[in-house]
Design a protein around this nucleic acid. Structure first.
Lengths: 380, 380
DNA sequence: CTGCGCACTGAATCAACAA
DNA sequence: TTTGTTGATTCAGTGCGCA
């Protein structure tokens, strides 16, 4: 039985359409298969984002005990065992290559790892022609101490964010991130507690998955780098953190996971995750998203009259508005609001909307205020 | 002429001796050669630690301007240019292999990089049989912003610390690190400001080297992973941060650097670096304020110099400050400001910040005044 | 002498679109 | 594919000049 047959068939959103017509993707579904095999049956160029939390290939020695004698419950599962560093390398390159095939040209991939595997992963990402956009540090607020006092406390994990190539476009909701970070640019180091408390899935008092990731981490990633309705694939789904957050944020998701106990836990968990309503999902938009307004339109509609005088905030430069929306300076120079602003300042570029001001009731206001007024009056 | 001939020949300390007898190393010297060639002429198994800050292979596009129109002075030097990712890979593996040959069996290597190169470096380190002990994040207190709003602010760099193999022993001064961090284990994420102000080397108003590293970073590394008298090699010496800090901390150093202007600046700088002298006070930067200030930070920033004498308000007890922020009493007891204060008084606990005083202009002031000064200087 | 404002700077893979 | 136009975009810190 193929992936597409066992999947709950859902018509893909328009963004998943290809030249061949509409594509059917197993949306909001867990494919209980091995990761590479399942990806192979997904159509090419159909996924907006991949978030991957692959096996870390931890090479742990014997048991580890805390100073008080208690036993540390380490990651000893079979899925984290590889015969050699070379075997891990081959596995990594195989799934990353498959991921590249199914990502859309403007898609991106996120991979999380620790020093045990992240360098192999990053090198493979570069060799496969992905283009790294950032590496992100998850600084753990409450990491496990180094009980033996032999090294620095391993207090972070590393994520790599990459696009499909050097020239590829990608989604980055800059304004959302800046807003989320109290009006400062979001940096490459993020602090979150490790996953615990009520969020940590448990069964019979034991954690269901040894490396469950905090939802806050996925929340930030999906908010930053996807749009509502985008399709997010997690090829190492585990207990479904990606699916739960995707559902909450109004994104579509596909999970791949081989182990039945994880699949069962993920299904139950995602069903309980309530989607945020649309108003809560609305995020700060970049001005880029607003339709373009030509300065000439402001003149045409009479918001500024030909002959009106504009000046910069310090009243250093004065120019006159002409009927076609061009500006004329005292010294006879002519140009668009941007070009003339740049030329007068001898700068490489200039945003005329914020540089030029008009006088209203004795005060100077940027002409961008007129553009905002125009947009408010004309937008639905 | 061989490296050993042109080098100032110095009898190596006992720690540099091998089974073949005493080895002659060009200690406390800069070898003006290409990195791999110079390493080739150094004897095998002779170096205690290598700190390497190799070219990052940045692949920058055109010019970049700030929002105010000013130009960003990027790293465009020839030494950072490689023909391809593959050429960079070969270069990396070549110098890392040579490094492994000259390191002692119990030696370690530190390499710093960014996402442009660190994954290639880390993968090569693993392939060459080194054993990664930690990856360390240098969280920059004041990184350059992302001016175009296209990605997350690139606010950190990554360091890899590796031993000679899985079973190899290595030096890690656990107590020093814990003391430096105010009795908490030192974590894998470190915060320092970028190198600027008085510490930044300048000539004719321009920075001498585009990527000078802060001394605080090297201070922590050398304090953590070497012993006094150990030999530290820096194959990408630049303007000699490693040499200056090594001299200050009583470690021997060897630098390899091809570019004459860097060599000249490094020589001058290291000559001016006085071993454990208060010269650190003016050259080192204050880390960003944290709610809690570690006493080690006061030492790291040079507000108190190793060797300084502290005493209680009644001058009953006298102790000496050590490089890692621990205190040494007359009777040989050692401990943190809190622990030693308690122990000397035979008390269950002691607030070291208010108990210990330093002498300034004939008067005694509590070291808490230094903490307050530090906080005032760093709090917004 | 202090405080304020302005200019300058740091390892950066830094735009999107239409003609 | 290339070229030109529009127009979006910055944080922490140092240092200097001036009131």
């Amino acid at each position: 039985m193929s992936v597409l047959e066992i999947a709950r068939a859902v018509r893909a959103p328009r963004t998943a359409a290809t030249a061949a017509g509409e594509v059917v993707l197993p949306l909001d579904t867990i494919l209980q298969r091995d990761c590479i095999g399942a990806m192979r049956e997904l159509p090419a160029a159909s996924i907006d984002m991949i978030f991957a939390d692959p096996p870390y290939n931890l090479q742990l020695g014997g048991d580890l005990n805390r100073p008080d004698g208690s036993h540390v419950d380490a990651v000893t599962d079979a899925w984290d065992k590889f015969d050699s560093l070379d075997a891990y390398d081959r596995f990594t390159r195989a799934w990353l290559a498959e991921a590249k095939r199914i990502l859309k040209p403007n898609g991106t991939i996120w991979v999380i790892g620790s020093y045990h595997n992240i360098f192999k992963v990053g090198a493979a990402i570069q060799d496969l022609g992905y283009w790294i956009l950032n590496d992100i540090i998850w600084r753990k607020a409450n990491p496990m101490p180094n009980f033996k006092g032999t090294r620095f406390t391993n207090a972070h994990e590393t994520l790599i964010w990459a696009s499909m190539g050097e020239k590829a476009r990608y989604t980055f909701n800059y304004r959302s991130m800046k807003t989320l970070n109290d009006e400062l640019q979001m940096r490459s180091d993020w602090e979150f507690p490790i996953c615990g408390g009520a969020e940590r899935l448990k069964k019979d008092g034991h954690k269901v998955h040894p490396t469950q990731k905090p939802e806050a981490l996925l929340y930030r990633i999906l908010l930053a780098c996807t749009k509502p309705g985008d399709v997010v694939l997690d090829p190492f789904f585990g207990t479904g953190t990606t699916g739960a957050v995707a559902r909450r944020l109004g994104r579509r998701w596909i999970g791949i996971e081989r182990e039945s106990p994880y699949v069962a836990a993920a299904k139950e968990r995602i069903a309980a995750a309530l989607p945020l309503d649309e108003s809560a999902l609305t995020t700060m938009q970049s001005p880029k998203a607003a339709p373009r307004v030509a300065f000439g339109t402001i003149v045409e509609t009479g918001m500024l009259v030909p002959g009106a005088v504009l000046m910069d905030a310090k009243r250093k430069y004065r120019v006159t508005v002409r009927a076609d929306g061009s500006l004329l300076s005292d010294c006879g120079q002519v140009g668009s609001i941007h070009k003339l602003g740049a030329s007068l300042q001898n700068a490489p570029a200039c945003n005329g909307w914020t540089f030029w001001h008009y006088e209203a009731e004795g005060a100077l206001k940027p002409i961008d205020a007129l553009r905002q007024t125009y947009l408010l009056a004309t937008q639905p």
